[in-house]
Simulated assay, not measured.
Amino acid sequence: MWEDFKKFALKGNVLDLAVAVVIGAAFGKVVSSLVEDIIMPVVGILVGGISVEDWSYKVNDVVLNYGLFIQSIIDFFIIAFSIFMVIRIFTKMKRKKDIPAEEEPEVLDKTQEILMEIKDLLSKERTGL
């Protein structure tokens, strides 16, 4: 059982997934900080100092904090856009790497040029042109 567990736990895919989760968590913190500490204060200034998070509606003794929901939606779109941009950049970099370099035309010396002309002339004589 121990050997089977080692094979499972040390497979390349499992390790890749673990690294992706850790990097994803760190990226999530960076983007959350970007949204909370930079973007939303600027949005607050642009809309006249109104904080979306403070929006609420009170029904009897129950408070509906719909502003927090709206803030979560805004956070989602900003995070989704950030991830989209990172993936787009990586995809463009990969495409550039995968595109083979254009082959330079072969430069012929004088002897090679004469041989090519002779070959073309012989080819024309055989076909009767």
Rank of each mutant, 00 (worst) to 15 (best):
P105N: 06
N60I: 12
D61E: 11
A25W: 11
V63R: 05
D16S: 11
A26K: 08
L129K: 15
R88D: 09
I39W: 13
F5Y: 09
F69Q: 06
M85R: 04
M40T: 07
G12D: 13
K6P: 00
I39L: 15
V14G: 00
T91L: 12
L10G: 03
R126S: 07
V107C: 02
E102G: 07
I38N: 08
D98G: 07
P100W: 11
W55Q: 03
F8P: 00
L15T: 05
L46G: 00
I118W: 06
R95M: 14
K6D: 04
L64E: 00
R95E: 14
G12I: 14
I78W: 10
K119C: 07
F27N: 09
M116V: 07
S82D: 04
L10T: 06
P41N: 02
K96W: 03
P41I: 03
I87D: 08
Y66A: 01
A80V: 11
M116L: 10
I79T: 13
I39Y: 11
I45Y: 12
V21Q: 02
A26D: 02
N60H: 10
A26N: 03
I87F: 13
I74R: 01
L121V: 10
V14S: 07
D120K: 15
L122V: 09
F8E: 01
E106W: 05
A80Q: 12
L129G: 05
S51I: 00
K58S: 10
M85K: 09
E125K: 14
L64R: 02
L121A: 14
S72V: 09
E3S: 10
G44H: 11
V52R: 01
N13F: 14
I45W: 12
S72F: 10
I87H: 07
M40K: 09
A9V: 09
L46E: 01
G12W: 15
V21N: 00
E125V: 10
D37C: 01
I39V: 15
F27S: 12
I39R: 03
E104S: 12
F76D: 02
R126M: 04
F77G: 07
